[in-house]
Design a protein around this nucleic acid. Structure first.
Lengths: 173, 173
DNA sequence: TTCCGTCAGTTCATTCAATGAACCTTGGAG
DNA sequence: CTCCAAGGTTCATTGAATGAACTGACGGAA
């Protein structure tokens, strides 16, 4: 999408949040980052996003402090994009929005399901673990393919996500 | 913004949700509807959205089942846009996103705060009532102006929201 | 040292949506 | 009959997304 950037005069923090993460593709980039995607080429292949748009979104998110650009190779010089604490906090909204989509827009079963690894239980639609009753931190959360999972996509991230994967752990491995 | 509408090939319900509510302005329209805004002219004045965009968004939301168009006057014929259950369920994601914006992007205090009217307590950043420990339903939630509230705006909705207001109750009254 | 390939971008022409001003339509009120 | 309001639609302009092509740094193989 091409979302304009300013919702001027909106006396609401939702508007400020949307100026940043409400642009087309942005929340999908963040979702991938929550899964553990860190590299330009992996975002590109997994999202099918135009290169120019990806570059611009990554830059915007880095500038805003949602992502941090970290050098992981000196030669050749290579950077990866890692979520900051501010970025990791987007897990709540992202999860609830995805659950809403699943309840209301999805015909087949869920593409992916989320488990609290320390309990083994599946996280409920509100983000709570039915076993311990708590709100599992991202580090204790695991993505698993659901019954509606698409097994045809063959980009590295999609392939890696065919088996259970701890959130934030670098993908594709 | 101009968000494209299709994130094809995304094996994630988040993408489907964003195709619908991820377009520019859409989530702000929903937020206003959650406050109780129902009329074309009130959305227009409160959001400062172009008329053509508002018409298109309302139509899309009605088609998707997020809003329902209800006739409230036969002569002259007048309709209002009322949230369906599917639309009311967006409160969770909307609230969390606004809280995220408040923690991370807001310089001043919050524009608005939310209280569980049956307990009187202020709802916490996760959407829970610290008094009863539960997740207050929208009908028991009240919006109140916060310390950072903008008192200068004089459209009917902004004026009405200067005093506490029960969510979903028609605005501007 | 030359050639090839990869990664991570940038550039550019085209397409499509947002914007905002102006206009239109329906129906009441005076 | 005229005026006004609500709720739109139309249209020219602007700006962003798209996708293909190009660039530039570097490593590895021959």
């Amino acid at each position: 999408m091409a979302l304009g950037k300013n919702y001027q005069g909106q006396d609401c923090t939702l508007a400020r949040a949307l100026e940043l993460v409400g642009e087309r593709w942005t929340l999908l980039v963040v979702r991938d980052a929550l899964y553990g995607v860190r590299r330009y080429g992996d975002f590109l292949a997994h999202l099918g996003i135009p290169r120019a748009v990806l570059s611009q979104r990554l830059q915007t998110l880095v500038d805003a402090g949602v992502l941090e650009r970290v050098r992981y190779s000196q030669s050749p010089p290579r950077d990866e994009y890692v979520l900051t604490e501010m970025g990791r906090e987007l897990w709540g909204p992202v999860y609830l929005l995805a659950q809403w989509g699943e309840r209301n827009l999805s015909k087949a079963g869920p593409y992916r399901v989320f488990h609290h690894v320390t309990c083994g239980a599946r996280i409920d639609p509100h983000g709570l673990c039915p076993s311990c009753g708590g709100r599992p931190p991202l580090e204790e959360t695991e993505v698993r393919p659901g019954p509606g999972a698409d097994l045809l996509r063959d980009d590295p991230v999609s392939v890696a996500l065919r088996r259970p994967h701890r959130m934030l752990v670098p993908l594709p491995g």
